[in-house]
Write a protein that binds this DNA or RNA. Structure first.
Length: 112
DNA sequence: AACCTGACGAAGA
DNA sequence: TTCTTCGCCAGGT
């Protein structure tokens, strides 16, 4: 069963612009459930292939890559760097510059 | 139907 | 400031 929340999350993730990232909590909030961050992670590792989601643009609230396997982490880091995302530490992303500001959605709507 | 799990997050120690 | 604990939602077993 796919809830509306889940679909919204998927949509959001799909609309993350290249070179930007979102945190689980942020996504959950934008999707309507501020406290369903865990669900977001679940969606990712269960629906990534199906929906062809840019999973690498989703990180945890600290700006760290949330994967467990070092190998996967490096892979994600590579993908992100390729898109222009900068890292402060080994697996820490510079949120100040790479976090996708939701306000840009409105700007896009109004501006373009 | 009950219990477990997860790429999380905020709060308390 | 770092580590631990508790709470959350939806799906899986």
């Amino acid at each position: 069963m796919v809830t509306q929340f889940t679909e919204k999350v998927i949509k959001l993730i799909q609309s993350i612009p290249k070179g930007k990232v979102l945190t689980y909590g942020r996504i959950a909030k934008l999707a309507g459930n501020p406290q369903a961050a865990r669900q977001v992670s679940w969606i990712l590792h269960s629906s990534t292939k199906k929906h062809n989601l840019p999973w690498h643009r989703v990180i945890n609230s600290k700006g760290l890559i949330a994967l467990k396997a070092e190998m996967e982490k490096e892979q994600q880091k590579l993908l992100l760097e390729k898109e222009g995302v900068k890292f402060c530490d080994k697996f820490k992303i510079d949120l100040a510059t790479s976090m996708w500001n939701i306000d840009s959605i409105d700007k896009v709507k109004v501006d373009k």
